[in-house]
Design a protein around this nucleic acid. Structure first.
Ligand SMILES: [Zn+2]
Ligand SMILES: [Zn+2]
Ligand SMILES: [Zn+2]
Ligand SMILES: [Zn+2]
Lengths: 143, 143
DNA sequence: TATAAACTTAGAGTTAACTCTAAGGTCAAG
DNA sequence: CTTGACCTTAGAGTTAACTCTAAGTTTATA
């Protein structure tokens, strides 16, 4: 039986976060001491680790909540249920990556166009590009 | 001279956002009618477009604020000043991309391992992976 | 003139996931 | 018995960038 600090150490979460997850319904302490201290059983610890793993992969707290409800009642859920959540998450991630790659591309173009030196920014091509509003069309770029 | 709604149409921002940007010091209306309506000059419009462009590229409101202060006083700033902001942003973006690629990789592995069918999740490999906490080590994976 | 669209303000609400604070209680070690 | 580390709670604060509301004013149009 671990106390909250020990669970924190074990999982890499903070005690604060564990309490927050408790409020969110992700982690609970099977036992409480008379004085109110939380005590975590092995089962609780495994659930906390599940939560940590799922969060680390990138699932939202809400997703983890759903995954946990599947976890406690696997026989009434299907692989499809699980892949749906996972696929949705992957789609999110893919979309974010696309956006970021576009930003990356544009930023690279800007950096390539500017000398970066100590001279006056009066004719800085980055500033000019931002003013021209066609700085938003990244193309094939070297490097 | 445009009113806020017209500027909104022209820039693709909303009137709300323009007012928010005003509070944040990014956009201001050179004129006000007697009744208090904002009126934007061509110069204001160009600044608003600069803001829109910079935001679209991914610069934070704070970054844009800094870029604007360079913009109004280019001769007292250098290309280095500008590239620093841009490079910092690119570094941020690169870091986020790395994190997302890791997530993407892991999610792909999970999806590959699960049949995704209508059968019970009792032996679902995604659930197993989340329970095993070694689901976090993405390796080379086929597409 | 009447109506509707557009505008004004201050300030509150949204989202996600924490993060921290205050004020106090508990427990093991020395 | 005292000290210090650890625990408790409710609830407020953080961040970024909006987004919305309410209640009222102005303006253009029919
Ligand atoms: Zn230069
Ligand atoms: Zn430059
Ligand atoms: Zn299956
Ligand atoms: Zn499965």
């Amino acid at each position: 039986m671990l106390r909250i600090g020990e669970l924190a150490t074990k999982t890499g979460l903070t005690a604060h976060t564990i309490r927050f997850y408790e409020k969110s319904g992700l982690i609970n302490a099977s036992q409480r001491s008379e004085s109110g201290y939380r005590y975590y059983t092995d089962t609780d610890v495994r659930q906390a680790e599940f939560v940590k793993t799922a969060r680390k992969i990138g699932f939202s707290v809400d997703d983890v909540s759903t995954l946990l409800s599947i976890r406690v009642d696997k026989s009434n859920h299907t692989c499809q249920d699980v892949t749906e959540i996972t696929q949705r998450k992957l789609n999110d991630v893919n979309e974010k990556i696309s956006e970021l790659l576009l930003m990356q591309q544009t930023l690279k173009i800007l950096l390539n166009s500017c000398c970066g030196g100590p001279e006056s920014a009066t004719h800085c091509s980055i500033m000019e590009a931002l003013d021209a509003s066609n700085a938003l069309k990244p193309r094939i770029v070297a490097e």
